[in-house]
Design a protein around this nucleic acid. Sequence first.
RNA 1: GUCCCCAUCGUCUAGCUCGGUCCAGGACACCGGCCUUUCACGCCGAUAACAGGGGUUCAAAUCCCCUUGGGGACGCCA
Length: 466
Amino acid sequence: MSIVTRFPPSPTGYLHIGGARTALFNFLLARKHGGRFILRIEDTDQARSTPEMTQAILDGMRWLGLAWDEGPYLQSERTAIYNDHVEKLLASGHAYYCDCSPEEVDAMRERARAAGLKPKYDGRCRERNLGPGPDRVVRFKTPQTGKIVFDDMVKGTIAWDVQELDDFIIRRADGSPIYQLAVVVDDALMGVTHVLRGDDHQSNTPKQILLYEALGYPLPRFGHVPMILGPDKKKLSKRHGAMSVMAYKEMGFLPEAMVNYLARLGWAHGDDEIFSLEELLEKFSVEGLGRSPSVFDMHKLTWVNSHYIKTSSPERLAPLVAELLTPMLGCAPDEDLVRQVVPLYQSRAKTLREMAEAATFFFVPTVDLTYDAKAVETHLGAEARQHLTALREVLAGITDFSVPALEAAVGAYLNAVSKPFKAIAQPLRVALTGGTVSPGLFETMAVLGKDRVLERLQHAATLIPS
RNA sequence: GUCCCCAUCGUCUAGCUCGGUCCAGGACACCGGCCUUUCACGCCGAUAACAGGGGUUCAAAUCCCCUUGGGGACGCCA
């Protein structure tokens, strides 16, 4: 049997961490078995759905590399299909019209809650045989006795007493379908065989199973993955900071790092930690999914990201860093220079943004270079001035600015004045970079180039009071 | 409140299906040390968990029950 999965986000928000992980799992499940992965936009709530969010979700999916095979389908364009099904349900006696006002229903729920019972609609319109009319919703006629049992792909057998359910609405008074109806109809019609979704949908499953049965459609397999929690162990939400997957792009995370981290949140394959998308395709299986909620850990995400930064080619990283650098510099940096700078930071930066920020001194003109006052004060004194001036002459005399040549030249100077490298390292660094932290000095000088090195040495000398 | 689900280091987790090989393994973080021109990287090392209580059994992290704790759901949202 061919597997068909889907990811059905609601365009009422961005593609967030939890949604992205669900999408990933569904993508992997389908692709691993040569099946199809469908993207469907659940915008039946016209009041809260926006095209901008749909676009944002698509952008997020693309950034992560989660290519869908079908869709995106828009539920808002399928109203007629849902209505056909509502009519079928009405005709077969599985549904009925109800004219209770929202206030009346609220009151019922309130009473039930006060009595220590589960808040439910009491079914008072069940046998009234109401026809269509304004302000009338359609409710599903939930069986009054029985159990619904299903075998969850991740949690095993789950059972519900049908008495926990009430006659839920399947079509609004304005004629639009409710989620429960729309998902079932679409999943059935689109041939979805496996529904992997968040835990928060677990309680919807019995209702949906009832709908499948009433409609005479075959049931898919359901699987509910636990929620992703914030550091406070509460459901991850905006309170916990960046939720949009694209926000992580802005923060300098690589999509492959995001995918890798997300995959490991709630899923494991032995002790393995690093997975490319290809490896995930090969190793993913629902058996590896965990049953308990997991906490989103920025530290580990960052570590995964630093791993990919270290192992990616400078060619891959350079354009991404340039993109981040542009707004910081006010203009696009020289791509070739970026390519030379990136390797110096691959083991030093944990995010691309960090890399861009740390490397700005390579790109700003010497006159605009910011010198850290504290650094200048502690490292640029009278003695430093002498060394820097002398070093400038030494360096002016060589044409080969390769790392070994620079090492040799500086080494010879140090020998002549019998000083250890330590004596000039920090002054040199401050003079060249404006601060006390940078990649290795010789690499830095090599990339900076002769002209700018001499320029900065001269400029730095002017900062030292004589 | 009612119902559903869950429960191994601070965090992600392996182990649980087929109880012994687990005085519980890996990773991140944290803390030490080494390396060293700064910062990183790298390497070495340390601290750290089977929620509690009952069973079953020769033997339980692994099976059963209860308690506690956590999460989710109870919408004319999805």
